[in-house]
Design a protein around this nucleic acid. Structure first.
Lengths: 246, 246
DNA sequence: CGCTTCATTGACGACGTTCAAGACATGTGG
DNA sequence: CCACATGTCTTGAACGTCGTCAATGAAGCG
C-alpha cells in the first residue's frame, strides 16, 4: 500500500518491447519521435484502479507489461468483465473525455500513456497511427463478439475450457508458435467468474472437473498444464478447425 | 421466393437518407463523387442470407433501409446473434477477404455496397472516411460490451426490458427526441432469443410477464407501447440516470 | 378450409447460484 | 515455533431460474 503509481525511466520507442504490436506499430521514424514527445510511463500495483467509469480521462495508453481489466458493474453489485488488456493493447478513446469502464490492474502493470490532446492531433496528421488503431479496434470488436457467443450460449464447462484455450493460443502466438502448453492464469477465481459470467464457485467446480477428466493439470493456484490443446478446444465447443481469419 | 436480390435504381449520395450517419457522413463533395463511382445497391427480402461466415466477401456496405443480423452458430446448432445492423450501420472489414459471421436480412433490406478494393484505396486516400469508420467501430465496440453485461449478468426479465428500452431510445433519437413510446420490434421471438441468449419460450414468458406488470402494452405480434420508459429501464437493471457518454 | 408459421402456456428437470463450512497457503506477532 | 488472522480456493446441500419437451392458440395465405 505504500507503493503508489510512479513514473518509470523513459524508454526509447525503438527499444520498446511492444513496438511492433501496439498502436505505434506502423509509425515511421519521425512519427515515433513525435510520440516520444508526448508519452510517459505509469506503473500500477496489483489491484490498483487505473480509472473509474465516468471519470475524466485526459490520456490514452498502451499496456507495456502486465494485465488490466475492463469491468462494468450494475447498481446491485453484479459485475461483468468486458475486456482484458494484455501487453500492446490500447486503452482509451480518442474524442471522448471520460472512461467508459472501470479499469483495474489485475497484475503489476506498466502503461505507456499519451496525453489525449496531442495524441488526437497526431491521429489527424499521421494516418499510420489512425489506421493501426482502426485495425486494433476491429480486432477487439471481433474478440468481443466471440465473447458474446461464450456468454450467451456456452455452458460453464465450455466457458472455462474456452478461456484456457484462448490463453494458451495467445501465449503460443507470442512465443513464436512453439506449442506452449503451460500457462499462468493471470486472474483469480473471482476475476475469472466476472469474465465468464459465472460465480467463483462454479469456476472452481468446473476447474476440478476438467482436472478430473485429464484435460488440464494444475500446478499451484495459477499454473495450468494442457496436455492436449485440441481436446480442450473440443471441450470448449469450438469447431475443431481453429477458426482463423486473415 | 421468386423474388431474388435485385439492383435498385442508383440514388445520388447527396440525396441519400443515411448520408449524415453512415461511413460517408463526413466525406467532402469530391469524396462523395468518388464513392458514387464504386457503389451499387442490393436488395434482400426477409430471411435471405447476405453472406455466410467464411464466405469470400469482395464488398463492404452500409445498411440503407431495413435490418440485418450478425449471428454465430456452434457446431451443435446453438446460435448467438452478435449484432444488429440498422440503417446507416456498416458491414464488412477492410483488409479481410472473408465474412466473420452469418449475415441475414431480418426485414426487407437495402444495402449500399462498395467494391472492397477501391474502397480500401479510398480509406488510404481520404482520412474522412477512415476516421468516420473508426468512430463507428468504437461505437460498435461499446455496444458489444454493453451487450456482454446483458448476456453475462442480467436475468431473463432484465434482458427483455433492456432490449425494448434500447430500441425505444434509438427510435427516439432518430425521430428528433420527441419521446417515442411506440416501437415495432423487428425480430421474431426466436430472433430475440438468439440475440438475448435465451430460448424463445423464455422470451415469450417474460414478454407476458412485463405485460402483466403494466410495463409494456403489446399490439399485434410486433408492436409494443411503453407507457413509462423510466420504469422499463428500472426493470432492465440499468442505473436510473441514462449512462450517456459524449 | 386446411396448411404453415409464429406465439403462448404448462409440467418437469437440469444447470448454475446461493449459502455455508472447511481446506490450504501465507504472513504477523507473541 | 506456534497461534492466529487473512485471503484464496474447494466442496457440499438446497434452491431457483431457465431450458426442454409438448400441447394449444392465433394469424396469414393458398
Amino acid at each position: 500500500m505504500a507503493v503508489q503509481q510512479k513514473l518509470s525511466p523513459h524508454v526509447k520507442c525503438g527499444d520498446c518491447q511492444i513496438r511492433h504490436r501496439a498502436v505505434c506499430a506502423h509509425a515511421a521514424p519521425d512519427e515515433l519521435l513525435a510520440l516520444e514527445e508526448i508519452k510517459y510511463y505509469r506503473n500500477f500495483c496489483v489491484g490498483q484502479p487505473v480509472v473509474w467509469a465516468g471519470d475524466p480521462m485526459d490520456f490514452v495508453a498502451s499496456v507495456v507489461t502486465g494485465v488490466a481489466s475492463l469491468t462494468q458493474t450494475m447498481a446491485d453489485g453484479r459485475r461483468q468483465m468486458v475486456g482484458l488488456l494484455l501487453p500492446s493493447d490500447f486503452l482509451g478513446r480518442p474524442g471522448r473525455g471520460q472512461a467508459a469502464y472501470d479499469v483495474t490492474a489485475v497484475t503489476d502493470l506498466v502503461m505507456c500513456c499519451f496525453r489525449k490532446k496531442p495524441f488526437e492531433a497526431m491521429m489527424v496528421k499521421t494516418p499510420h497511427i489512425a489506421h493501426r488503431l482502426l485495425d486494433m479496434t476491429l480486432d477487439e470488436l471481433d474478440a468481443a463478439r466471440e465473447w458474446m457467443l461464450l456468454l450467451g450460449r456456452k455452458r460453464a464447462r465450455e466457458k472455462i475450457a474456452s478461456f484456457l484455450a484462448i490463453l494458451a493460443r495467445r501465449e503460443t502466438a507470442l512465443q513464436g508458435m512453439r506449442a506452449t502448453t503451460n500457462i499462468e492464469v493471470p486472474l483469480t477465481r473471482e476475476e475469472m467468474a466476472d469474465y465468464l459470467g459465472l460465480t467463483l464457485e462454479t469456476v472452481s467446480r468446473q476447474m476440478t472437473a476438467l482436472k478430473r477428466d485429464g484435460l488440464i493439470i494444475t500446478t499451484g493456484k495459477r499454473g495450468v498444464h494442457i496436455p492436449d490443446l485440441a481436446a480442450l478446444q473440443e471441450a470448449a465447443g469450438d469447431d475443431s478447425d481453429g477458426e482463423m481469419l486473415s
